[in-house]
Write a protein that binds this DNA or RNA. Structure first.
Lengths: 118, 118
DNA sequence: TGCATATTTGGTAAAATAACCAAATGTAAT
DNA sequence: ATTACATTTGGTTATTTTACCAAATATGCA
């Protein structure tokens, strides 16, 4: 691969990769509804604390979430809530299947929709 | 994980995962410039034919690209060129680092920028 | 028909990921 | 200071991913 921009390529891929796991996807959607502490995520996902912690570390490492310790708890939040625009588009891709992808994937963003608040 | 929508979650994650590899990222960007045949991608990436073929299969499986056989060659194209909007946003995230992400990630789309043609 | 070209498929080994448990760390309250 | 709670880190094992090679398949041309 001819790569003056190999590093950029890897960085971008890393961000997508971080979103490429159902549990982390769930977390991102959860955090889109507002920050929450690790224990809340553990409750929602139903996996081991350590597992959740590691998934959160992946998202953090990719720059998708930020964490803040307050008292005994650590709170995570989406660093960029607009990442949900992506997610909603992808959702449409999934729902509408292969055929309509072309139209559908573009829609949400171009009309400036943002359904984070729902 | 409480999952009436577990399947949806997995499908979305799969799409992100497909984008989560430098080589596949490169391919998507290459295809954003217009369809091309497998051999052109092989040349660009510099990996084995079989490796490229398998990466393309991942993208196809995820519904990101489509293939069409013409003569001896197989041509691939982006099923949804607007997926590049995502990629460019992510690019900004990478460039601007953690601090500015919040503003930057949103920009490209809201101003309707689309640099596919460059 | 038979050959060369283009691509995919199958197999295998190395590397990366993911889940859990146990132990370590940091913080607050006693 | 000790204890309890919240989270992270380290270790282990199972699974998945990736890359390459070799072999199979498909297509066009001699």
């Amino acid at each position: 691969m001819k790569s003056s921009n190999m590093l950029m390529l890897e960085s971008k891929a890393q961000i997508f990769k971080a979103l490429g796991h159902p549990t982390r996807m769930w977390m991102v959607e959860r955090l889109a509804g507002g920050e929450c502490c690790v224990c809340e995520i553990v409750d929602g996902v139903g996996a081991d604390f350590s597992t959740i912690s590691k998934h959160l570390a992946v998202l953090k490492q990719a720059g998708i979430v930020a964490d803040e310790k307050r008292g005994k708890q650590v709170f995570y939040r989406l660093k960029c809530p607009c990442i949900m625009d992506f997610v909603h588009c992808i959702e449409n891709v999934v729902i509408n299947g292969a055929e309509e992808q072309h139209q559908v994937l573009c829609c949400g963003l171009e009309e400036g929709k943002n359904e984070l608040e729902r």
